[in-house]
Nucleic acid binder design. Structure first.
Lengths: 341, 341
DNA sequence: TTGAAAGCGCTAACAA
DNA sequence: TTGTTAGCGCTTTCAA
């Protein structure tokens, strides 16, 4: 199986073992060009017997084509991103493209660094979360000459193309829905991260729509770190203690909303009569809770799918699509916690 | 910024722009060898002005070294794996190695396929979940000649090295702890996946330890798909209906255990007096629940860290460590749901 | 401290 | 249908 000196096997080894030229071996292994059935079988047999694994490094250099799509996201621990990845993978699996993931931890400098690393592998396309990047990162992406799809957000100008939702609009819509149900004294809880632009935009849209109706956030609190569920409980308890008159709580994500729900239920508070609740994301988790929390779907899998499709199409056709920005429309699930009292 | 024909920039472009040989430019960009301060600055300036991004494909081919570590895991949607990734990243970030992830969806054939893809990039090491692989996959890994660390499980013979816990032992320990607290009529709920070998081994260890004490599982149920939390609720409700005399419920993961907890609380059942509960994994999520569910930590971050450390050390020193198998010892958290009644 | 030459393992392009 | 030649963009090695 192994060769004498344990040097990795090359095309040449297969060529010698099968008595066929390197070029023909290469053709067989890539299913390219016309190769006779007999030759093909001889080559395949030899390759398998030797345990040959092609060297894509060399192949990519020679062909000037790399079947990799770089995916740059803030984190894997927020379930949102694995779901986006699912969408991306499901589309790319139909092609010969492969996603490679890098994580930025919500740090712009780290984003710049990992982007540089990824681009130095000369991928065929980039899918990157958000519209906010350092100047250097934007410059790199522009100069790369490959398709770049910014995902999850459409509030801004994309470098090349974008797929996502408008978080500002999402915040506004939720505010309108809450007001429409008659809630008036509204508290907000969310992550502290100043670099989570999408959460920030939702918050901005939310307060903006409230302001338009003459309503102001009654109380707000931000957290960082720890178990989101536990934080949701804690913050909710603290906020209700500060202001027992609150009649609605809006959370920047479903996990802390779930924590808030458990806290309110434990306190025996009437939901949604006395207090209403809403989160954001539409996570599957919520299905198992005692009440279905009101939320808004961020269309995560769909975003991944559409982004991957753009890249795949561009590479396949060599042309650029008309619509550079695809804004998906999230819908509100009212669940059991956002209802006329 | 961009060059005439939008061909990607090469070392040669930087060489011409700075008036220094390609070789010296290369040295500067890699911080290698002795280069005068003046030359270094000229080169760096030219590279930055042009927006040059090195081509790792060419670099890797020339140097025969690829700073990639392939990580092959079943899924990203099970929070266990992102946590393992965190451990891996935290160690590799201290080196010049970079993880690249591939997902198998618990399918052996897909594992084989993605492994082949990864190995064709000639990574410097492989971290792969589990000890069960197809023959072809094992052969590839053996023939690759690079360090291979199998993670999450130590019940079996590794190809090269392994870091994880013994799931059989984990199952046994939990069974012993439950029996010791006086519980006797025990139900089990878990995933249906026949390919989740670790869950299977825990179950086997669990029933084995019960048998030794003359106890048999009173009821069991397996699920697949859907929200784990919701499934936990449903299965728990169904099982209690079938056998209201059950005094303990053991779940194969914390998510369904949490669902079970919520169901029991809603039914007003005394926990742990009437019924005790335990899950597996020690997920952060549990912190926010009304009761802390008994569980067992799978040492996920630590597993990732240790595995990455093995790879990094092998590459740095060129030697192989003595201990090929590192078995970590999970500890039981009794929480509020596993206590003498 | 710098440069020139020779390849890394493969594939594009052309020839037979 | 198969083979030959000439690189891909870098780094290694050796010479200056």
């Amino acid at each position: 199986m192994a060769n004498d000196d344990s040097r990795p096997l090359t095309l040449r080894d297969v060529s010698e073992a099968s008595g066929v030229s390197e070029m023909t071996v290469s053709r067989v292994l890539r299913n390219r060009g016309d190769v006779s059935q007999a030759t093909r079988e001889r080559v395949l047999e030899a390759a398998k017997a030797l345990g040959y694994v092609p060297n894509k490094i060399a192949g990519a250099l020679a062909s000037q084509r790399v079947n990799l799509v770089a995916v740059v996201i803030p984190s894997l621990r927020n379930m949102v991103f694995p779901e986006v990845m699912s969408g991306i993978s499901s589309v790319l699996e139909e092609t010969d493209l492969q996603p490679i993931v890098a994580v930025t931890d919500y740090l712009p400098e780290k984003e710049e660094r990992v982007l540089y690393e990824m681009l130095s592998w000369r991928p065929s396309g980039v899918i990157i979360a958000g519209l906010e990047h350092t100047d250097a990162a934007r410059a790199m992406l522009k100069a790369s000459g490959i398709p770049v799809v910014e995902i999850m957000d459409t509030d801004g100008i994309p470098i090349d193309a974008a797929v996502g939702i408008s978080h500002r609009r999402a915040g506004r819509e939720m505010a309108k829905a809450i007001l429409k149900q008659g809630y008036q004294r509204i508290g907000f809880m969310g992550t502290k991260m100043p670099l989570d632009h999408r959460a920030r935009k939702r918050f901005e849209g939310f307060t903006e729509a409230l302001a338009k109706a003459g309503v102001e956030i009654a109380d707000q609190e931000f957290y960082s770190g720890g178990s989101a569920l536990a934080k949701g409980r804690e913050m909710t308890r603290a906020m209700l203690k500060r202001d027992p008159e609150l009649d609605f709580l809006y959370y920047s994500n479903d996990m802390i909303a779930a924590g808030g729900l458990l806290e309110l239920l434990e306190q025996g508070i009437d939901i949604p009569g006395q207090i209403g609740l809403a989160g954001f994301n539409g996570v599957e988790l919520l299905d198992g809770l005692p009440r279905r929390v009101a939320t808004m779907d961020a269309c995560r899998t769909e975003v991944g799918r559409k982004a991957a499709q753009i890249i795949a199409d561009r590479i396949a056709t060599g042309t650029v699509e008309d619509e550079r920005v695809i804004e998906l429309t999230p819908t509100i699930s009212y669940g059991d916690t956002l209802k006329r009292r």
